[in-house]
Amino acid sequence: MTDKSNAKAYWKENIRYLFILLGIWFLVSFGAGIIFKDALNTIKIGGFKLGFWFAQQGAMYVFVILIFVYVRIMNKLDKKYGFDV
């Protein structure tokens, strides 16, 4: 595999992972906090409705977790394509 095709494959896979992780973040922040709020509010956690919890705190927790997941995925991707220095 040439360097140019190697870099192209790397970025293609990187963008695919980005879209997947951003999709998860969108579903959690916009979906759980706004769209599915009424359905989630029937469930309570610690005295608070689940829809409220996702809108106020859950989306932030998921975002931080997704950052760590992205770092782990990118480290594996760097090793796979030989970009780990």
Rank of each mutant, 00 (worst) to 15 (best):
2 T>L: 10
5 S>Y: 08
6 N>I: 08
9 A>T: 02
12 K>W: 08
12 K>Y: 04
13 E>G: 00
14 N>Q: 07
16 R>F: 15
18 L>A: 11
18 L>P: 00
19 F>L: 15
20 I>P: 05
23 G>E: 03
25 W>D: 12
25 W>H: 12
26 F>P: 01
27 L>D: 02
31 G>Q: 09
32 A>N: 13
33 G>W: 14
35 I>N: 08
35 I>A: 08
35 I>W: 15
36 F>V: 07
37 K>S: 12
38 D>P: 05
38 D>Q: 14
38 D>M: 12
38 D>H: 14
39 A>Q: 14
41 N>F: 07
45 I>N: 07
46 G>E: 06
47 G>P: 04
47 G>K: 09
47 G>W: 10
48 F>I: 09
48 F>S: 10
49 K>E: 15
49 K>Q: 14
51 G>Q: 10
52 F>V: 15
52 F>W: 15
54 F>M: 15
55 A>H: 14
57 Q>E: 06
57 Q>A: 13
58 G>V: 02
60 M>G: 14
60 M>F: 13
61 Y>L: 12
62 V>D: 03
63 F>K: 03
63 F>R: 07
64 V>I: 06
67 I>M: 11
67 I>W: 04
69 V>Q: 01
69 V>H: 05
70 Y>D: 03
70 Y>A: 11
73 I>W: 03
76 K>W: 07
77 L>T: 01
77 L>Q: 08
77 L>P: 00
78 D>E: 10
80 K>W: 04
82 G>W: 02
83 F>M: 05
83 F>T: 03
84 D>E: 12
85 V>D: 15
85 V>R: 14
